[in-house]
Design a protein around this nucleic acid. Sequence first.
DNA 1: GGGAATATTCCC
DNA 2: GGGAATATTCCC
Lengths: 203, 203
Amino acid sequence: MATDNRNIHRKIGRSTTRTKCPAPFLSKTYDLLEEQEEENNNNNNNIKVVSWNGEGNGFVVWCPDEFSEVMLPKYFKHNNFSSFIRQLNTYGFKKVASKRWEFHHEKFQKGCRHLLAEITRKKCEPSVFPTYLNPSKKSTLLLARNNQENTTRQLLMEENQNLKKEKMELQLQIAHFKTLEMKLLQCLSQCVENPHNKTRRLF
Amino acid sequence: MATDNRNIHRKIGRSTTRTKCPAPFLSKTYDLLEEQEEENNNNNNNIKVVSWNGEGNGFVVWCPDEFSEVMLPKYFKHNNFSSFIRQLNTYGFKKVASKRWEFHHEKFQKGCRHLLAEITRKKCEPSVFPTYLNPSKKSTLLLARNNQENTTRQLLMEENQNLKKEKMELQLQIAHFKTLEMKLLQCLSQCVENPHNKTRRLF
DNA sequence: GGGAATATTCCC
DNA sequence: GGGAATATTCCC
């Protein structure tokens, strides 16, 4: 196993001064391009394996097979092109051509190593559950949690409904009492004014 | 980079028939011991680097430096003893001696490769939040979620309180009406019976 | 020892 | 492309 003298990046990368230091993957990919660029310049006759693109705002893997077999193991712990692509996607790079392996990232540009520290890993959508729970367990937990929440809400809503119904009934009673009071008062007034009338008919 | 023909374990390991297949780390560690055992038997004069212990219910790394530099890279993508230990801990192995690197696991025994599939990774305590969220973000989310739940409940509870208060007031009104009705009726009856009495005093 | 970030692999 | 499991690293 070749010793990896780029580990220094990683060591600093994990420290609390993270803002100063890009992720190891980014530094290594940048290193790879810079070192390959130098080699490309020295041997104009050779076919390029990987290089910055014309504008210097992205890079192209010209020979994926050679890149994977020869270059990847020099910088990473594997020789799989797909793992390299997976990392590019993780850090938000975009494939910008359909017929060649050209990738862009706003903050990944030739001569701008200082921009690397501004590139962050894409975050997955926040899930409220740890990844090791299988979907069935997740649904069970979801149901449990929802059930608990729903039970409280359900009880409150039921109570609300009942209270509203009771209120309506009470208001209805009051309406009847008001009518009754009115009639009684009417009746009384008639009674007082004409004590000998039959007032019962009001009821 | 040496190709790793043990990846077959991994490929199967990720399939849905996971129960049949141990984690790659376990298979590799078992392979390593079996292959080293054979080498130990062939060269009795050599110092052992790693071997099963006497009972066959654990193993001993006799020479950590040589083990790390020579054997680890043959089976894993690193040469760090501490990473190997980290994996052992992840899978629940216990260090059982203070003066040498001897590790046990109930299901990791000489001649019992079939037990490996029963060894599982230790799970961290279920956190409701993804690990990438820092504590401050976690509290914010917690508060947000709680706020949302609390808002609903709070509103329902407030509505409930108001409804109960209104109900009480309505009942009070009804009580007054009942008193009033009673007095009016009393009054009326007096009025009818003794039309010339002063009935107003009842009010 | 183990939590957590990053890397690598596998799979959809 | 990206979710998720496992591996490797870093740090407490």
